[in-house]
Amino acid sequence: MRLTRIGGPTVLVELDGWRVLVDPTFDAPGRRYDFGWGTSSRKTIGPALGPDEVGPVDLVLVSHDHHADNLDDRGRTFLREAGRVVTTRGGARRLGAESSVGPVDGLRAGEHVTVAAPRAGLPDLEVTATPCRHGPPLSRPIVGEVVGFAVRRAGEARVALWASGDTVLYAGLRRAVRSLDVDVAIVNVGGVRFGLTGPLRYTMDGREAVELIALAAPRVAALAHYDGWSHFRDGEAGLRRAVDGARPEIRDRARWLVDGVAVEV
């Protein structure tokens, strides 16, 4: 498997001939985006690769479509060229209403879809939505629906790729990862907070990410979505402190990707 971190949560995954893109974000830095309920964030780092440099993709996994740090304007344009899009149920309705985007599959946590191989000689892929809670307890009606993705080669039990999505660490996620046999994980971190909501966090900080990696025990845990936006309060510094202070087996699993550089894992 080859991973190329493009920026934020956006990672190109090359798996058995498939080209899979996670959460496409290609807007330039500098703009402030509204996140609802009086919250906002400014993008501070642009993508390492533009859409033309990424090239065609067979499958796009969109953990949620309603926050611009996971799907921005240029990312939405990119979806028009994608072979297949998998996202949340609500996201599928919204994106499906855009006539230029499709086909789009919408999943709730625990549901799955089989994506047929786009070219001869490639395996079909089974994509299962995994649970996320993008904030404190009872926040889902406010922050919206989010999922992660477990991607398997059809017919195999082992998860070739798990993308965590934007989430805090909570009981539902702990139960889910204990049931997965994961090869490579993409773990979104950052410790998102907003001044308006004080100490409430909307994604994992470094300490929680270390705990999640210990629970999931993937062969490789690629770290993502911890920089590039003003709403990351734990950020890269907090994540590095947590990883550096973790047990050796956790440090060995953690993989820091350099934006724009393809890495074999």
Rank of each mutant, 00 (worst) to 15 (best):
A171M: 14
R193E: 10
G7E: 10
F78T: 01
A246N: 04
A262V: 07
V263M: 15
V20Q: 04
P9W: 10
L71Y: 00
I142T: 15
P118G: 02
T4G: 10
G172W: 07
E211K: 10
I250G: 03
P131V: 05
G191D: 03
T128R: 14
A82G: 08
E145Y: 13
L125H: 02
R247T: 15
E156R: 12
P131H: 13
G17T: 08
L122R: 03
P123Q: 06
V11E: 13
R19I: 09
A185R: 06
V258W: 10
Y202V: 12
R233G: 08
D16Q: 11
P136V: 04
T167L: 06
R174N: 11
A221L: 09
L169W: 01
R251I: 05
A82R: 01
R178P: 12
T10Y: 01
V104P: 00
P118D: 01
G102Y: 04
A116S: 14
G36A: 04
R5S: 15
Y226R: 13
R241K: 13
G191I: 05
A222G: 09
D252L: 10
D181K: 07
G121L: 00
F149P: 10
E81A: 13
S139P: 13
A28M: 12
L161V: 10
R175D: 11
H112K: 15
F149M: 10
F194D: 02
G144Y: 00
V22M: 14
T128H: 10
L12V: 03
G165W: 00
V265S: 08
W256F: 05
V147I: 08
V13Q: 12
A224S: 09
T44L: 02
A185T: 04
S164P: 01
A242H: 07
G235V: 05
R80C: 14
M204H: 08
R133Y: 09
A68N: 07
L180N: 11
G91F: 02
R42W: 11
V177S: 01
A254C: 01
V115K: 05
L215P: 08
L61A: 06
F35N: 05
G206V: 02
P103K: 03
G75C: 06
V182M: 11
L95N: 07
D227G: 15
R233C: 12
G102E: 00
E249I: 11
R19M: 12
G96C: 10
R119T: 00
L169D: 00
D234I: 05
R84I: 12
V168C: 09
T4P: 14
D72Y: 03
A117E: 06
R42T: 11
L3W: 09
A109H: 11
G190A: 06
G30K: 06
L59N: 00
D72T: 03
T87P: 02
F149H: 08
A237R: 14
R152Y: 02
G110P: 04
G228L: 07
V189E: 09
G190H: 01
